[in-house]
Design a protein around this nucleic acid. Structure first.
Lengths: 149, 149
DNA sequence: CGCCATCCCTACAGACTCACTTAGAAAAGC
DNA sequence: GCTTTTCTAAGTGAGTCTGTAGGGATGGCG
């Protein structure tokens, strides 16, 4: 049940963009360096983020990337689902897929009930987490670390 | 985040074994037929279940498989982890792995906190679900279906 | 003992996914 | 037109997933 590294990199990139929100475009190279992400891989991730409407990009000199919305309006769930497709543990509880049953025993399937329960609690745990929350948490963690030095 | 079909097949097989608990050994062929699982694939799954101590097997004529414990003592989590390894969304929150930090920023990592939250609620949702519960649910679903015919 | 049924175990196949890299096209500014 | 940057497709090597195939080990039975 591991999440892909794309998802982690995407969140890191958004954190970096969030930190510089309002300061114009940020180079992908710079994000890669400061968050330790393979540069060419990050480019493709930023492209996905752009297609998902989370990031805006500008080509050419003075180009780069920035958040398409305020951090408080970017939900972690949206980011994860952009890269994982869906957090559903099985097709039969994935509400994006066909509303018609996918397997013959679906109506009375106990496994489906189990997966649904698991899926619902996963979603609930991240439902209201926004990029803004992660940014604040990160700032707080950083300050705490500074304090101990 | 899909679970493997092995896990689903394993739960189905255990449900079938649970239904016949106390009636001696059940042929893998019979489990495969009644739950619609590829026979040779199921054999390997039963082997894993046996190695995990969930099932007992007997070779030769009159051989077969049966539950190694009472259904009320078989937890769904144990079954899932037998086949998925761990439900942790990332190595850094997998308590089975090294207690020493896995990545340099781990101590102040906000993503780790997020994964931990998600992981904990997944586990909580299945923590106390036993095979017995699924069996009862299945019997109930089946009776309900009968009622409507 | 010989035979057969059944589980045990390994090896392999084919499709797919993951984590990247490469290489170049397209756009924007100077 | 040159540089800088993003955009995009294609490829790669390793690994995983869902099985299948074939034979070995073991137990019951005549």
């Amino acid at each position: 049940m591991r999440l892909s590294s794309k998802t982690e990199y995407a969140i890191l990139a958004l954190l970096e963009l969030g930190k510089r929100h309002g300061e114009g475009y940020v180079l992908s190279r710079e994000i890669a360096r400061s968050r330790n992400i393979p540069a060419s891989f990050l480019e493709r991730i930023l492209l996905s983020l752009r297609n998902a409407g989370l990031v805006m990009s500008q080509r050419g000199a003075n180009g780069g990337h920035c958040l398409a919305r305020d951090p408080k309006d970017i939900s972690v769930r949206e980011v994860i689902e952009t890269f994982e497709g869906s957090l559903a543990p099985s097709d039969c509880v994935d509400e994006r897929l066909s509303p018609t049953p996918l397997c013959p025993v679906e109506a009375s399937c106990v496994i489906k009930d189990l997966w649904k329960k698991m899926y619902d609690s996963m979603l609930e745990s991240i439902e209201n987490v926004k990029l803004k929350d992660l940014m604040e948490q990160e700032r707080h963690n950083h300050e705490a670390a500074m304090y101990y030095i």
